[in-house]
Write a protein that binds this DNA or RNA. Structure first.
Lengths: 144, 144
DNA sequence: TAAATAAAGGACATTTTTGTCCGATTAATG
DNA sequence: CATTAATCGGACAAAAATGTCCTTTATTTA
């Protein structure tokens, strides 16, 4: 569904949000450790998220990554997915046809649109804050 | 969503089914031409489908690929997907966690299960025959 | 102001996916 | 029985995704 990069990106963003709720800024090393991901690869992904203004980075000692409380509400999963995987999840034919639309649909078009609409709605309506608070109260987990 | 191999596999299977409805056995070359896919790569995928008894192959002159009328009903999309992509679409965590289940869910677990259940239902309930007949009456397309 | 710390970024390495080529095998037909 | 047409299968090639290493840049603090 998502690329590895995107999986790490979402997990990292949720972890950063969780720590930011406690006012803690976190380093790539801590993030990679806590979400069980490759450090350098995770660093690249965090750069992408930072460039897309999804998370905020601070250089130098005491630096690291953080997310403002308001941004946790504003940032929805679809923004993270788009920043990392582009819009290929939302766009294009399920069977790989170049042209596929209601006028000239592939055999799976309608059924595919249904699934994708649901996925899209879910991603657009799920905020980082929602995911981070689930973690905070111990309902969900990020590791293993 | 699906790998390229799986996209080609589904398109090929639908085309073979369509032609089999007319009693025509088709060659890899014709299939690749008609579904606009790389020939040799398509041949590999057809071998996989053949080994999994999803399509039937006949060697030698007048040979090619075909699907019996009964099999078009029996073969559902999930069987093709499984033969080519394995069960990674149905199994495993959306965020890539090794352990992720109702007892120890990732932050996206429940929402992911919903989407995947829908996808799974759709694939399990869609037969090759259904897709081939849509093509036959000109409601859907396989190329471009 | 020097040292230390952390992200940024470029180059490179590995693995997986996608795709190609060619000889071997099978079967129909003249 | 030779020729030809088709799939089968293995080895190879190219491209994309994943992952690593190392240098540079920014910033804090002693």
């Amino acid at each position: 569904m998502f690329s590895k990069a995107c999986e790490y990106g979402i997990r990292a963003a949720v972890y950063i949000a969780l720590q930011s709720l406690d006012g803690r800024r976190v380093s790539v090393n801590e993030i990679a450790e806590e979400i069980d991901s490759p450090i350098a690869f995770t660093a690249k992904i965090l750069q992408q998220l930072s460039r897309n203004n999804i998370i905020h980075s601070v250089k130098g000692p005491t630096g690291g990554f953080e997310i403002a409380r308001e941004d946790m509400d504003a940032v929805k999963l679809n923004m993270i997915v788009k920043a990392i995987d582009g819009d290929k999840i939302y766009v294009g034919c399920g069977l790989g046809l170049k042209e596929c639309n209601a006028q000239k649909p592939c055999p799976l078009h309608d059924k595919f649109v249904d699934i994708r609409t649901d996925l899209s709605k879910m991603l657009k309506s799920t905020s980082l804050f929602e995911l981070a608070t689930g973690l905070e109260v111990g309902l969900t987990y990020l590791k293993r």
